[in-house]
Design a protein around this nucleic acid. Sequence first.
RNA 1: GCGGGCGUGGCGGAAUGGUAGACGCCGGGGACUUAAAAUCCCCUGAGCUUUGCUCGUGCGGGUUCGAGUCCCGCCGCCCGUACCA
Length: 871
Amino acid sequence: MSDTRFDPSVADGRWQRAWAEAGTFTADSASPKPKSYILEMFPYPSGRIHMGHVRNYTMGDVLARYQKMRGFEVLHPMGWDAFGMPAENAAMEKGVHPGGWTRANIAQMKAQLQRIGFALDWTREFATCDPEYYSHEQALFLDLYEAGLVYRKESTVNWDPVDMTVLANEQVIDGKGWRSGAEVEKRKLNQWFLKITDFADDLLEGLGSLEDWPEKVRLMQENWIGKSQGLEFSFELSKPLPLGEGVGDGGSTPADAVPPPPAPPQGEGSLQRLAVYTTRPDTIFGASFCAIAADHPIAQGLAGDPAVAAFIDQCKKGATTAAALETAEKLGFRTPITAKHPFTGADLPVFIANFVLMEYGTGAVMGVPGHDQRDFEFATKYGLPIARVVAADPAQADAPFKGAAEAGDGVIVNSDFLNGMTVEEAKQAVIARAESEGWGTGKTVWRLRDWGVSRQRYWGTPIPIIHSPDHGPVPVPRDQLPVVLPEDIDFSEPGNPLDRHPTWKHTTCPISGKPALRETDTLDTFVDSSWYFLRFASQPADKPFDPEEVAKWMPVQHYIGGIEHAILHLLYARFWTRALAHIGKIDVKEPFAALFTQGMVTHETYSRIDEARGVPVFFGPEDVNRTSEGATLLADGAPVEVGRVIKMSKSKKNVVDPDAIIARHGADAVRWFMLSDSPPERDLPWSDAGIEGCARFVQRLWRLFSAYDADATGEDRALDRKTHQTIAAVAADIEALGFNKAVARIYELTGAVEKAAPSASRSAAIRALVHLAAPMMPHLAEEAWAAMGNTTLIADAPWPEVDPALLVDDEVTIAIQHMGKLRDTLTAPKGASKEDLEALAMSSANLQRSINGAPIRKVIVVPDRLVNIVT
RNA sequence: GCGGGCGUGGCGGAAUGGUAGACGCCGGGGACUUAAAAUCCCCUGAGCUUUGCUCGUGCGGGUUCGAGUCCCGCCGCCCGUACCA
């Protein structure tokens, strides 16, 4: 070892080739070893790997390499979530083919990933746009279709009339299409849906078993599923209402389509009853009005009145953000209709109200101002009675309200037969009464909607359905799969190119043989990512996966990705896994045993205010000279404002390109930086000083490794202890995903070894350090391992054994306190008796000075830790 | 509004109720060098009457021999979100 510098530009490539040639990270499902499946969320092939990817995959890589060293057969695959809109946008803007654009991006990003030296099993790589992948997806879709989990229905979508395309909710900005800027229209289209609601209860219940998921994600999913229990019942209306035009379901999109609300019971050509849903049937005696949504059939029926129509219009204009809703005023329109209270017979006024949503429950509510804050505000504004029906105790039955509704628990008052019951008892009593008298039923309502999977786009998995003139929608026969996307495609006009293609959609009915049309919609890309982890585990040619192979690897032991997928992707994958289990394809319900959501990579921003326009102009870090005092622009040497540390984004120009950093400092320095300092779930602020420090440490370790002397003799017990304690601690930290702490331990041991005199212990410590560094800085570790004369790969080496006897020190530092304040520290033998420790403490001059002769009332001794004297 | 998270040096952050600030970055001083880079050593929470003492983990209380950690009440920031009946 004569080289004084570690040269990553040579070493990185050397070891990356060595791993590839040896198949070091190829997972063998036939291995007798215990299995470990480590997975990071696969990337969309946008064209470039960014720092967020690097951080995400580095964490998974450390786990994968560590698990391998611990004797597991590790599956750590990588692939590409390759369908989706950006490819079509590129096709429209640059005239390239979406497939070609995607393939080129994949090639580029794969090369980038390989330069970072990730321990990936590239033999299992696939892209979701491979016909080999999506053909199996089509087969699974048909399996679910046959199991009755797929259905078709008319649903409203956001339609961009200029681009002639459907927009997701996120693509509608202020009511206009994000690309065209055109006013978005509501359109009704026949769309395919997956029955995720069949699994709502199971998906909710399953969250309880996911102990290694972040509490936050479980709560988000719980809220999204949104289970509530209550009573659905109907009021008799004072006068029948003629049915008007425009009765239909509310606005919705493919992503969260809304089934038509249960139609209120109807008389002949009229509405005689008003159905409402409440989670507080116990408060029914407090109802003083009813409120219906602006698009409720009754409101629509009254829309012939210009005043009603105007009010409905006003409701639709309201803002939808949470912040806006919070301050939005409750608005109502009093209709001439009244509703008869089922117990008191009182006539309650029926309002059209802006705070009632057609999409939830029945689109109508009973208003109980005393015990619902919205109803309280509404009643206050429109002078409606506010009755108390729940009180802290019966004596408070007529206590006044203090400016707000009381939604809490208590005892029922002013409520006839419910008086004296608890809230819970009264709920049950009212539901029982309603059911026995036939005017209502107990009901569970879910927020979760069925999953609309139709997309009017080219670059996705074709939905394997044929629309027959005689037999309606018919599944494509299995022997005709896959339905492959046509290559000759024209993006020169707006709209779905599949629909416009001259021949593709023309086929024959599988039943009658008569001419028929293919479904031209493609599947939501979330379908692609709902089962890719199964395909990684097993990829036979003739079917989506082999259940026995899948069983060897699943569930994923560590799933790592961004919090932005907390709901949709993770819920859909959980649903899809359950659906496959439901039809007997697999024997696992929860795909991801543990989930980890990593923080973002952030960077400070550099900007100047453009005087003319009054807006900030941002500069990239490469154009700025940053010192500890501030920052100046390289171009003119004048200062720029150093802004907050925020997520890297192109618009703020605070992006750092991984390739440039790797070229400069090597893969290991970047990997080390990704693991250092910040806890992995928190944001990681990128800084030049930080990466330079990491690059320095790589060299510092290299110098230490270069000083390795296999023949050194002599024992250094203290260093042996430090070594073994560090091995154990780093292992525990990695297993807990506390990478920043593992990094700190390695720094500590490095410092200790550097200071130690040559000995066999020191050489052993250096060997241990090479192993500890191997999962994090694999290129450096391999280079050092080879230089030490090994002909094997350290990636294949076992994690060092720990001698338990060396984990405990034989001397400990005892804190000497007086009244809980530190007065001295003394060393004592490990395991010294309480009496000895007390005597030792009393010998401390500092302690005696502090006590100053005061009588000792109590002595607290914590063995091996401290002595506290109380006076 | 609701739900979740966070608040510790100049910065990122450590700390099973038991020595607050591990480790890294920045900064200061020194060694080596003709010089620079690289490297190495020392210092680096504030203050004071400096063998030591006082203060100090967002604020105010409490529990405890002992609180960054537990409890109660506030404040601030971040993320999520659904006026869900």
